[in-house]
Write a protein that binds this DNA or RNA. Structure first.
Lengths: 357, 357
DNA sequence: TGACGTTGATCAAGCGTTTTAGCAAAGTAA
DNA sequence: TTACTTTGCTAAAACGCTTGATCAACGTCA
């Protein structure tokens, strides 16, 4: 047992011990060094409000902590408190796109803000991996799990997920009572179309995707809503479809040019990228001969096309953050529908004011 | 106390209790249900090799576990075992680029493979956040920490990081004895140049970056090595510099055309993207009038340019995975230099065979 | 003087596991 | 029968921490 005199008299010696890896300093050791009980140390470490500890003792403990380089053991802490400070995030594709990264980022920031750490797992779409990942999280007694997909889609709820408190991020389930948060595709589509309308365009084509997805329906719906709000009758001729990638956009160009429009709203940025090439091949320039807006705001594409592409942003960061808030019960969760997150517009220079015809 | 008959006689009733959230099932409860001691349950849960448990008991326990939906508490487990199954990953920019995502992905896969879970934190370059993140990881008694940056660069080692077992990923320190893993820029530069050489090009320009970085030096070095190996004297005129983005590439075009070369190797894909535009403006076509290779393999760019860009891949996934292996001591770590990871070439169609002059 | 209230700190139980030592019962060998 | 080994299982300590109960010492008030 170290006497009080000793411990306060030789703080220097202790300071040399530094982090001698292999034997983390414990509460008890701090207590011994400071000549107090572990209870006391715990009290000062946690700054308990109603703890009555004298100034001297407090200082003695603080010094011991510093000298020894004490770090509380979070495991032990959560063991006794019963509730862990973890939130799990299972993603189906971390690396494939920058999107997942944004979800992680948003979730991490928000979790952090509320004192939670993020435990992540990547399943790459593999069911077994997914099951293992969820088990792992369950064993770490996570506060809850964010189940996310890299593109907006309906999803099955894995059985083991039900054991936890969970919310779906960027995906949804038809099962009643499931909390989910997704991008507001329709609003995004409306916004995209409105950019064009606001610049005076009246004949606006929409090149939708050929493959079914919530985005396909939502983005079209938004287009229709915006036109209707502007008092422009829908011309079915102007709604085209193409495979949602660069190739698709490129190949859609000739058809588009037959439609006699001054502006196009593309299902996504990659398609717009192809369209840029297609229009250039036809000697047309953007935005003078044709205004173009995309969707997704894939930075690497949209910001670097020439001219930079006006588009609508998929709010992945917000999706992650909102997911966390919903999980923690900080955000209202409508019982029978997914929460829809706003898709903000990002205006660059691919749209110019159109003189009225 | 539940008698043995009861517990094995009424598994059905128990099965209905399912996950009654709020009170995780513990070892003790399983033990009671199965009519055995917690020690026994622990033994069967962990499949201890030298445990002597009768087949009947084993089954009784297994049934109880299933009926109750028992999940071991990983916290308690690591508390007693002393070592946690966590590896921390602190990144300076999760969302900014797809790159960080790949590092995470690689680290996660590899960690998983060895039974570790990944705890991630994003610092967005903020020193305080970084410190907090590391503290958090330390408190969770992580096995070690991967400290990663989104672009290859030298870095300071944060003080708190020293308290942990750590390895630098995609960055390095001049401090001796620091483990680090980085991309092999020189080899990448060599490979990039070799693609061109292999296709018969002799006058090959290199547009390097203007801003200093390990990549700048390494990629140039590789260029020189490849030329030398091919017996081509270095023409300093052919080494140009431009700001490493699309704009820079575009603007470098006129200068490049004065050099009378048949091929260019660009510092990165974004530069190459700009160069594509520049060349097109001059009525030149790729790869017929000019062969182009990039560096980084930024999928969204490289794969979707027309023609698709041949480039060299930055091995972020491997960087993450190797970092984990190094941390766990599964991979040799040279004492005074960073481990260099191969940058594989990705050949697409921006280079065509050049008829000898 | 005694009854109380405060102050400053400690005790000890408990969180959910693992694990070593040990014990009772059954089997085996002589 | 005795002595020993094996089998099957349990008791209990330990891991590092939190926290309600307790307590001694010291005022304070009537």
């Amino acid at each position: 047992m170290v006497s009080k005199e000793k411990s306060s008299g030789e703080p220097v010696a202790a300071a040399f011990l530094k982090p001698e890896r292999g034997h983390p300093v414990t509460l008890r050791e701090v207590a011994e060094a400071a000549g107090v009980s572990t209870a006391t140390v715990s009290l000062v470490v946690n700054n308990k409000k109603d703890a009555r500890i004298s100034v001297q003792t407090r200082k003695r403990v603080r010094d011991a902590i510093k000298d020894l380089g004490y770090r509380p053991n979070a495991m032990a802490k959560t063991l006794v408190s019963g509730s862990s400070r973890f939130i799990g995030l299972v993603a189906d594709a971390i690396a494939t796109t920058p999107f997942a990264g944004q979800i992680i980022h948003g979730a991490q920031d928000e979790a952090w803000r509320h004192g939670y750490a993020l435990l992540i797992a990547n399943t790459e779409g593999n069911g077994d991996l997914e099951k293992d990942a969820i088990s792992m999280m369950l064993e770490y007694k996570v506060r809850g799990i964010l189940y996310s997909t890299w593109f907006h889609r309906p999803t099955e709820i894995p059985e083991s997920l039900r054991e936890a408190d969970f919310v779906l991020v960027n995906c949804f389930s038809t099962e009643p009572g499931t909390r989910a948060v997704v991008p507001d595709e329709a609003q995004g589509g409306r916004s995209a179309t409105e950019i064009l309308l606001r610049h005076g365009h009246r004949r606006i084509a929409f090149i939708n995707a050929t493959i079914p997805a919530p985005a396909k329906d939502g983005r079209l719906e938004g287009y229709k809503e915006a036109l209707e709000a502007a008092g422009i009758p829908l011309d079915p001729e102007l709604v085209m479809e193409a495979y949602p990638d660069q190739e698709g956009g490129y190949e859609a160009t000739p058809e588009l040019l037959k439609r006699d429009v001054t502006a196009v709203y593309c299902y996504n940025d990659r398609m717009a990228m192809g369209l840029y090439d297609g229009l250039r091949d036809h000697g047309l320039s953007i935005p003078d001969d044709m205004a173009v807006v995309g969707f997704d705001n894939q930075e690497v594409i949209a910001a670097h096309l020439r001219p930079p592409l006006s588009t609508v942003s998929l709010p992945h960061y917000e999706l992650g953050a909102a997911g966390v808030r919903m999980l923690l019960g900080l955000e209202e969760a409508p019982s029978n529908t997914a929460v829809k997150i706003n898709c903000p517009t990002v205006e660059r220079t691919s749209v110019r004011v159109q003189a009225p015809a």
